[in-house]
């Protein structure tokens, strides 16, 4: 049994919040360069170059890439041979978020009651998902998620008869409905199967996969390519101003589902595809 101290988790989460909001991954830099070279619209190309310049500036100055530093979505893959000592796991994560958002001069964007809407002042609580996995490591992923793209997301319980065509149509409808609002070029996370909440969680997790990587199931990988091609034919383009690059990538995650169900969740991510991780 490996012991991990709650304080250590807090420290790691604190740093991951700052890192995620100021630095994008290697896969993102490759994807934005590819987008710049593929974009046909001069204005679209210019928008992509500004997006890249902004990311450069954020990484070098430590300013947030985007002022919407989001709600902190924290994924924990907790090895079953790990024992947390010196405090409560959820408290440790929230304390890390609290400190990280102060340390990084990040915006506090959480309201306590959805209807009364008073800011909690410290960006907590985080949204925490825990998976128990084999082994004795704790993998922590912090994925701050802004509301512009989150509000553009949607879920639908399709009929099995709707099939692949139905999935394609729903993803396209969702993208067309949001257009410029989600700060394209976007990343599209799709959760297919499971039930209502499982599909939503799969869609969110799909956003964590490195850009350019395909689902290992061949026909799902093919569907990803097909959706990406269609989305990039909509003409929405960078910032919605018209162009070829509406999405940087489409990732689909699947799970077995009920004989009567075909749930599909579409989680839209803006161009600032932020996530950072560490393993304890």
């Amino acid at each position: 049994m490996k012991e991990i101290c709650a304080d250590e988790i807090t420290k790691v989460v604190e740093n991951l919040c700052v890192d995620a909001c100021t630095k994008l991954g290697k896969d993102w830099w490759q994807a934005i360069d590819d987008a710049i070279s593929h974009e046909e619209s001069p204005l679209g190309k210019e928008m992509l170059q500004i997006i890249k310049e902004n990311a450069d500036l954020a990484a070098s100055t430590g300013e947030a890439i985007c002022q919407d530093t989001g709600m902190a979505v924290v994924f924990l893959e907790l090895g079953q041979d790990v024992r947390i000592t010196g405090g409560n796991l959820y408290d440790a994560v929230n304390e890390g978020v609290r400190r990280g958002y102060v340390k990084g001069y990040l915006r506090k964007s959480v309201v306590e009651d959805p209807l009364m809407r008073e800011n909690t002042g410290d960006n907590t609580p985080a949204i925490i998902h825990v998976d128990i996995v084999p082994g004795s490591d704790l993998r922590i992923i912090v994925a701050p998620k802004g509301a512009g793209s989150e509000n553009s997301s949607a879920l639908k319980m399709l009929k099995p008869a709707d099939g692949k065509e139905g999935v394609l149509k729903f993803v396209l409808e969702t993208v067309e409905a949001t257009g410029p609002n989600a700060c394209p070029p976007m990343v599209i996370g799709v959760g297919l199967g499971g039930n209502l909440e499982k599909s939503a969680l799969l869609a969110k997790k799909a956003l964590l996969r490195p850009l350019g990587e395909r689902n290992p199931i061949p026909h799902i990988a093919q569907l990803e390519e097909e959706i990406l091609e269609l989305v990039n034919m909509t003409g929405i383009g960078p910032q919605g101003l018209g162009g070829r690059v509406t999405a940087l990538d489409v990732h689909i995650e699947v799970y077995p589902t009920h004989i009567a169900s075909l749930p599909v969740a579409v989680n839209i991510q803006c161009h600032a595809a932020r996530h950072a991780e560490a393993v304890l």
Binding site: I50, N54, E63, Q67, L241
Partner: peptide, 13 residues
Amino acid sequence: FLAVGGAGAYLAK
């Protein structure tokens, strides 16, 4: 007017 969405560091300058 439109400003570039998600370019907060660039615009803050």
